[in-house]
Each structure stands twice: as structure tokens, then as C-alpha cells.
Design a protein around this nucleic acid. Sequence first.
DNA 1: CACCATGTTCCTTG
DNA 2: CCAAGGAACATGGT
Length: 271
Amino acid sequence: MPELPEVEVLVRHLAPLLRGKTIRAVEVRRARVLGATSERKLRAALAGATFRGVTRRAKYLVFEFKPRRGAPPLRLLGHLGMTGRMFLQPHAAPLPKHAAVVLGLGRTRFVFEDTRYFGRFTLDTGALDRIGPEPADFQTVPGEFAAALGRSSQAIKVKLLDQSLVAGVGNIYASEACFVARLSPKRRADGLKPAEVARLWAAIRAVLAEAVRLGSTVPLSFGRGGKSDGLFYYGRAAGAPDYYEERLRVYDRAGKPCLRCGAPVKRIVQA
DNA sequence: CACCATGTTCCTTG
DNA sequence: CCAAGGAACATGGT
């Protein structure tokens, strides 16, 4: 369930591992994840390119490469979709069944695998243009958030999934944010009072920040072997307790007692 | 076998 | 043109 926090933790993990590494080989095993980019173009752009850094925007990983003579700056967009994973492994290790793109880095290789192939690994950075403000960015003004909510009759839970409104919130953290803000997910966006909008905004920031902190703190195992991968909720070190599930306040807790009032949590489906 | 699942994009409808 | 709803994408787990 990669949402903003999972991607953020993965980026922090990958950045120091990739920085300075040069791509020696490009293998595309499932061209669908390249989106509009042709396999040829990807190969031409990446072969011989050296990683300069990895950053995050919403749920996208942005891979940046050192500029090459006469060429425009090169950026690559990665998205995990529902089931994507990215990790480094020794060159001799077996590839996972659903490896979509493999980059040879000499002694190691970078693997993007995705069982459902909903993810992306592409030179087309157009998606970034349609993304709203980063909620954690202190420069982001909640005023625009409030204004956008005021223009919509949709339920707030649904609204939070709109990446042009706030970047990086998915199903899980949208539910969590509503709960922390003490707002029914069914409330109409344009029906919130200013104080409620402020509560929701604060809840979004708190819930995401908490998840990043947790993912950065808990002992993780990102490598291959067993279920380990780049996602910390799967990637706990062997034997580590299941912090991830335990810390969710309302998502996937249907039938369990509400943490605030004790009544059984009811499951609803929206949109 | 039926149904469900973290996300995004595209098409249709109003 | 815009907002909203819903299907599609592909695979595996329950």
C-alpha cells in the first residue's frame, strides 16, 4: 500500500545506495510499465547514465541523473502502483517473478518489480504537473486546500484521494486522517466549517508525518530474501512485531472496537 | 469459484 | 468546459 510515507521511506533508503552509481545495462521485461516511453528511448537515455539523486513527489520517485554533454537534464519517474517494489540485489541473485525493469550497476543491480504491473518507470514526467501541494511542506498554505474543498460536493474521504488537491494521500491515510480529525468520511467537502477544515488539514499532516517517522525508525529489511523489499510494512526485519498494522487507527479495522468510543467499526465503501 | 486489494487514467454521463 | 462516477489495468490472496 504505497502512499506518501512508504515512498518517502523507500526514497531515503535508495538515495544513498544509488548516488554515483552508473547504469551498465538496461533490461526491460515488461514494457507496459514504461508508459509512453519506448523501450529504445529508455535504453538510450539510461545506458551509461550516472545517478545523482532520488527524491519524492507525491507517490512518485524522481530519479535524477548527472547531466551529460549536450543533453538536457535527465529525470526518470517511478511509481509503485499497488504492488510495486524497488530494491538492489547482488548481480547473481535470482530475479523475482514479476521483475519489470532491471538496471545493471556493476556488482549489484537495481530491480523494479510489480506483480500487477500498475506501476510506472518512465521518462514521461508529465504526471508531476497534475499534482497538488506536498502536505508536509511548511510553505504549503492550507487556504488553497480549504478553497478547493469548498468547490466540491464530494465526500471528504473521496476528495483526499484527489492528488491535485493534496499530494500523496491514499485510501489508508485518507481514512486515518478523517478519524483523527473526528470527521465522518461521508461529510460533503463543501459542508465543512472552517474549524473542521483546519482539523482535517492538521490530521493529514500528522498522520503522514507519523507514518514516515515510524517507517524510518522501525528496524527494516529492504533487501531480497523472503518477503523483504522496499516497503516497510512488508519489509520488517524477520521477527519484528507488526508495528504497521497495530498503529492504524481505523483502516481495515471493521468489527473491531473504535479506539475512541469502543463501538464496533463499521465498514463502508465510497466511490 | 467469487470476491477483494494499497493507485492512476480514461471514458461516459450529467 | 467541469465534476462526478465507474470501469479498466493484472495478479494473487482469502
